[in-house]
Design a protein around this nucleic acid. Structure first.
Lengths: 232, 232
DNA sequence: ACCCCGGATTAGACGTGTCTAAACCAAATA
DNA sequence: TATTTGGTTTAGACACGTCTAATCCGGGGT
């Protein structure tokens, strides 16, 4: 019923909503998807007609519950695929994103169920992103915060890293900064550079602010159900 | 570069060429793909422009080597996926076709390699259809013949069954008529019904001519490399 | 040799998703 | 309050893949 393209828009809007909160602007969507603003205007018009989002002209856009459900379905496909490729087909951590993007629109409900079963109904993908549950209720990340919201001396456990840029992923993977890793912030330079110490291997790692902003962390003590992460 | 739709046309033409030999008519392609003849005319025009097939107006169409290579690539994807779904995701014999059709256009070369490796570089899919090799040379089925080309008393080994109709597959699977099965033709009725005895379980099975026509068989003695087939 | 009929092609249209160029609104600035 | 400016939307175009309706071949029967 919905085209692949529409699903991509809904996924993008969902992601942007999480990052910056609604309303999401035309140009942000255009930027994110690599389309021109008029294209986005035309597409959100169609999505509005289908009741998948609410739009206020010249303001921006917000997903309806129905639109959010579709976005979560696609996201569930994406993250299950990432987990499966890593776990069962020997993909490295940074290779899975594009493959999952290509496949996420074309797998059946049956396939989704079987992949989830083969993985043991996982709750996070290899990057630490939460996999929406089969009933498509919105996952809650309120127990995590951005690395950049913390200060020197704070001891934290990495919860998620962004999966947008493969090079960045490669770098973080090399550095040992992966979901589950305990780190300590050793320095914050005024020009936007965060230095952390990886507790396991005692190595120091400097991260540009743009990267640090995409890393989600949680306090080290309280146990959490995000541990069954498999490295690349 | 090529669209999914174009790949579907090339795959269809390849299949029809194997069945009836070139040239393949517009209406046969239309019938096979569930499109109207004008749509097919327009599409084969584009495929001809790209050098993927040769066309003689009002006669029909024949794949070029390049077009055949594309068809084999898609077929390799399709059949590797069928084998993988059956082997590793617990799909039954008759469920895999549609899933493979949906995914075959969207997997990367990398994915193809890893799936082939996970399966141990198989040479046939669960239906017994030959999987084109990675170098995309045309597979040769000259060692097999149609069941309908044989007579009463002939003892044969099933080599392949068609994967077009899930109900038919279900039926054959129930009946124990699967690749590798040894059968003996016990009767051929004049009104198009072939009766075979499955040697393993000694059951008799009547098959309409339309089904028998799609079953490929080979002589029972000489060993062949088509044995590593997994049942549903 | 002529005609006819079935299959093939052309003509013209439509929906989707995209673009560029032009018009437009609204919020910040003067 | 008037104006500038930057993001948004409208207008118009195009490629793709599909359809229906109309036209056109070409082989088989008379």
């Amino acid at each position: 019923m919905l085209s692949d393209v529409m699903e991509d828009y809904l996924k993008a809007i969902y992601t942007l909503q999480l990052e910056h909160g609604p309303p999401v602007s035309t140009s942000d969507i255009a930027e994110y998807l690599g389309k021109t603003p008029p294209t986005v205007t035309s597409m959100v018009g169609k999505l509005e007609d289908r009741g998948l989002l609410d739009r206020e002209k010249y303001k921006g856009v917000e997903l309806t519950d129905e639109g959010e459900t579709v976005a979560l379905e696609v996201l569930r496909h994406h993250r299950l695929l990432e987990a499966y490729l890593t776990e069962h087909l020997d993909y490295s951590w940074s290779e899975v994103h594009d493959e999952a993007d290509a496949l996420e629109h074309h797998i059946s409900e049956e396939f989704e169920r079987r992949v989830a079963a083969a993985l043991g109904e996982p709750e996070v993908d290899p990057h630490g992103d939460p996999i929406p549950s089969a009933d498509l209720t919105p996952p809650d990340s309120s127990d995590t915060s951005a690395l950049t919201d913390h200060g020197v001396g704070d001891r934290l456990v990495v919860s998620r890293v962004s999966d947008r840029d493969p090079a960045e992923l490669e770098y973080l993977s090399e550095a040992g900064v992966t979901p589950g890793t305990t780190i300590e912030i050793t320095d914050i330079a005024p020009f936007g550079m965060v230095t952390v110490r990886v507790v396991d291997n005692d190595r120091e790692q400097s991260l540009p602010e743009s990267v640090a902003r995409t890393i989600r962390v949680r306090p080290p003590d309280e146990p959490c159900d995000n541990e069954e992460v498999s490295p690349a």
